[in-house]
Nucleic acid binder design. Structure first.
Lengths: 239, 239
DNA sequence: GTCATCATGTAAGCCGTTACATGATTGC
DNA sequence: GCAATCATGTAACGGCTTACATGATGAC
């Protein structure tokens, strides 16, 4: 869970722990409260497993952020503190390794055995751009089926037993929420299927491994059928 | 959490563990998956703490229909299962003690220090009938405030950063859901405040401690302010 | 000069999930 | 006779929260 979130954020750009936490909290609404006691150990684990490489940021580097808007701020900061290395206690900037990309692809494509459902789905959807179209579609449809199950349960619950006004309101509101979630998913699925839309098999989609530019192109799998590539591309093999 | 759920269900009627699980899963939608490894230890804890009293259910009770003519059938049943006790492995039926009622009232009125928010609120609302009107109102308003906070965060998140279509859809849909939750709460709060409505100070509300008497709900209204009620009413003093 | 924020980490403990063990009853 | 459901538990493991420790920087 935590691991997937970290890898997903780092897929886009390198970051230090504190910022990962901020992004998780503010940018995506998921993980309202990411505690340090959970974040840093996770980073350590990932580093040990070879998924991440950490570099001590002495702050003199300034590795040109892509976002143009940040460049100004960055320059201002550097101007104000010319000495370099005036680092607010050496940050560790984490970068995804190839191994990390492999792990991310697998984690993302794997459905959680027995789901913590909502958060897990939210996280996967947030990184859905890294999934191939079919896997994306499957993600959405699995979720839809899940919700329909729960909707049935909620409906029968609301109908069956005599609940007091509060419990009843709770159950009914929950059922309505689920219904709306299903409609939302329907729209996403439709968009995904629309020709020329997001899900068009011919259209481009962001692939792990092809983002950094470190990998030339699709031929990253040229060495033959490697497990990673298949895991993502044909993720449907999962039981 | 688990504790509150158990006490709340047992407030209404005695039950064995397996059924508590069923009710939690099916009746209220909360706790989709209550695992035994979590349920039974919780029951043990509560029993040790004196909140629950357990009786081995031999099942010989079987409130017999009084007609003497049925005795024959009954005898036949007993003949088929000679032990009498058709006990599918002696169930332990749990019953709330006075101490348990006290604990329940406190747990219910206490707001979780730093919330697991949604589930916690759902649980408390499901048992809101056991809260005095002011506490109920406070519960709803705290939740509303919480949601407004999160809504602000979500909105600023959606506006601020450039997210891809999936992440954006996720964040926007989350924000809409929160908005609807707020509206729902508004309706509940309104109903709570409406004179003669649920929240009217003079109207009846279910009190812990006055339910077990096998009295029908309607007659609760006639009961005057009793000490139990006061214990709950002043529950707001809890730090 | 002190408080809030940025930044990283460790240690203890709770709590919950998973898996295992047991055993009776019902239905096919 | 065999599977599914009912029913209660124990043990291991893992992850997350809480609290603690440290320390620099910037604002008031």
């Amino acid at each position: 869970m935590m691991e997937l979130a970290i890898l997903g954020l780092l897929e886009e750009q390198e970051m230090h722990g504190y910022e990962i936490r901020r992004r998780l909290r503010d940018e995506l609404g998921l993980f309202a409260n990411v505690s340090f006691g959970s974040l840093y150990p996770a980073l350590s684990r990932l580093e040990r497993s070879g998924a991440l490489a950490a570099v001590e940021d002495d702050r003199h580097v300034a590795p040109v952020p892509m976002t143009g808007s940040l460049t100004g701020e960055w320059a201002a900061l550097r101007a104000r503190r010319p000495v370099g290395t005036r680092g607010r206690r050496g940050r560790k900037v984490y970068r995804l390794t190839d191994e990390g990309r492999r792990q991310f692809a697998i984690l993302l494509a794997t459905e959680p055995p027995t789901g913590d459902d909502t958060r897990s789905f939210g996280l996967r959807l947030a990184f859905a751009r890294y999934l191939p179209p079919q896997a994306r579609l499957r993600l959405l449809e699995r979720r839809r089926a899940q919700l329909l199950d729960r909707l049935g349960a909620a409906r029968s619950a609301a109908g069956g037993v005599r609940l007091d006004r509060y419990a009843r309101s709770l159950v009914e509101h929950a059922a309505e929420s689920i219904e709306r979630d299903v409609h939302w998913l329907d729209r996403l699925i439709e968009a995904e299927r629309a020709p020329g839309g997001a899900g068009d098999p011919g259209s481009a989609w962001s692939r792990p491994g092809s983002i950094t530019g470190a990998m030339p192109d699709d031929r990253l799998a040229s060495a033959g059928p490697d497990p990673t590539a298949r895991a993502v591309t044909t993720g449907g093999d999962i039981p």
